[in-house]
Design a protein around this nucleic acid. Structure first.
Lengths: 161, 161
DNA sequence: AGGGATATGTTATATATTAACATTTTACCA
DNA sequence: TGGTAAAATGTTAATATATAACATATCCCT
């Protein structure tokens, strides 16, 4: 079954239920493949993150979870987030101390985000070899061996202009 | 007087006293030009930041300042940092919640950093139009209007390899 | 069923940042 | 030159973010 073709996440009107469903299905498949356990807590956190394309903070997740289960403590959420990050299911947005669902979790990859100051949505670039290549070129010019990268662009998204 | 020519900051052996001196002199000139006040507190914080090329956290600055003046409270440091950032004298490293001296504060600019996992030093790229262009190109392809960008690459610097 | 590995619960604390209001210092000009 | 508004700093407290450490439960394998 081929993945759903869907407009970029900045397109404000889209069938977001499909985003969520696809993300959960992809997560199940990833975890099955990796032999990691997609427990109900982890699933619930991932679902909450996918409620929108806006990065959410750990503490807003804690608040949400407390509506369902009173004494949800920080480690619960941070552990789930750690798991989801390790399995490429969510990305951390460093400039916001927040987390957003990964839109193509199939394999580990460097990520680049465009984050709208108006609607707060974050869009992950797909297949942006251009930026990656530019970074790799600069690094090798300097003799720097890359292990990870953070690229977060803020501004106004097309739908908000 | 032309600026000192100096090897890139990742070169572990360099005359770091000159880095500090140049940074302070540049700060004086910037502030004079902008009509902003380079008070002794701000100068002291900038000097502390420039003790090395390693990004420092706000709290490590507070600790340092407390050795000189017992009751230094967080707002003291955060205000100085705010001023220094506004005047392009320091950059914030989002992925570390830490601050590092700007190596070319003459005018506002987008910054890109390479951060070594071994020696913890951060090097700011100079004139890296390549990365900026790649980002601009991607953004305009998507119709995204950039207002700021965060580019932080981690890995191993040449001196540490 | 036993037992080690993994996950979750629980309590406490560390780290990072800002709000709000009081006081002091500076710049400027009447 | 002294009055005053703006800017800077002091002070107290609160909020936001993240992790340590240890206890208990659950899962998976044989």
């Amino acid at each position: 079954m081929s993945p759903t073709v869907r407009p970029p996440s900045f397109t404000h009107k889209h069938n977001h239920a499909a985003c969520i469903a696809d993300a959960i299905k992809a997560a199940e498949q990833c975890c099955a493949q990796n032999g990691t356990r997609f427990t109900s807590q982890r699933r619930r956190v991932l679902e909450l993150i996918w409620q929108s394309h806006k990065p959410v903070t750990a503490y807003s997740l804690i608040k949400s979870l407390r509506k369902e289960k009173e004494n949800t403590e920080p480690p619960t959420v941070y552990r789930a987030l750690e798991f989801l990050q390790e399995n490429n299911l969510v990305h951390r947005i460093e400039s916001l101390n927040a987390f957003v669902g990964c839109e193509h979790p199939e394999k580990e990859h460097r990520s680049q985000f465009m984050i709208c100051n108006q609607c707060d949505q974050a869009m992950e670039l797909r297949n942006s070899r251009r930026i990656e290549n530019a970074i790799s070129t600069e690094a090798s010019k300097l003799g720097f061996a890359i292990s990870s990268s953070t690229v977060e662009i803020t501004g106004i998204c097309p739908s908000c202009q």
